[in-house]
Design a protein around this nucleic acid. Structure first.
Lengths: 127, 127
DNA sequence: TTTAGTATACTACAAATGTAGTAATAAAAC
DNA sequence: GTTTTATTACTACATTTGTAGTATACTAAA
């Protein structure tokens, strides 16, 4: 039974989740084509990943004809939130403010980003 | 030779790094006491971690008397920056703005956090 | 100078991760 | 109807991670 989902995703797992969140329901081949159009990884490697991700409760599959179609079990928002929590707790000692300040001070944000943030802050404060 | 440092840290490795960044130079025992005052992990487990972290180029050690003292090789800022890059690229498709917006919209920031961010933004724009 | 206490160095091993090959099966093409 | 092609299912294996025990060696105490 899908062990209360709370693990870290590896880079490849994130990639797989992203295309599935984006496209909805896909076969291994679809995902593979999307992620590795030049065959950087073997097809069966991705197959293995995706089947292991079912065991982890991240995906589920359904066979239609002879092809398996996979889809996310976990919501993107939820996963992002959990991952952010874990990341902040590891890298920023649990302080979201620290991370936010780091972002603002890091030069990693474009001026559009900054404007969007200001707007969001104003909206949030307006309520 | 310290293979250009670019790996992910596990939760435990982050913990070790954090106490070392904080305190400077410590023995295994010091770190262990700090992180697991109730012996949640075996002393030798931490020893193993710290020695592996030397191979990964994260720490270095120096023997004084019969005790090894460990210290970080990589700067905290740099590590945080790299880790943030990787995290954003995995979880937010590479968009820092997305992460920042997510943070502001998530309710994870306190009002002091928000104020600090506004101040930082103003300062940044003032220059 | 034998003994008891520490810290180190080395070894061990299971689980998870990264990577992919091969066997089997079904459909399509000939 | 036999061959080829597409997929899946299963197996394999090296590396890394998590966890810790044991053997050594040195210091301090008795």
């Amino acid at each position: 039974m899908s062990k209360i989902n709370n693990q870290n995703l590896s880079e490849i797992e994130w990639g797989i989740m992203r295309v599935l969140w984006d496209k909805g329901v896909l076969s291994v081949k679809d995902v593979w084509n999307k992620l590795y159009p030049n065959g950087e990884k073997a097809y069966t490697t991705i197959q293995t990943y995706m089947d292991r991700m079912i065991e982890k409760g991240l995906l589920r599959k359904e066979k239609i004809g002879l092809v398996n179609f996979y889809q996310p079990v976990v919501q993107q928002e939820k996963m992002m939130s959990q991952a952010t929590d874990r990341f902040v707790s590891n890298a920023f000692g649990g302080s979201f403010g620290h991370l936010a300040a780091f972002l603002v001070g890091s030069g990693k944000l474009s001026s559009e980003d900054i404007n969007k943030i200001k707007k969001l802050i104003n909206e949030a404060e307006g309520e």
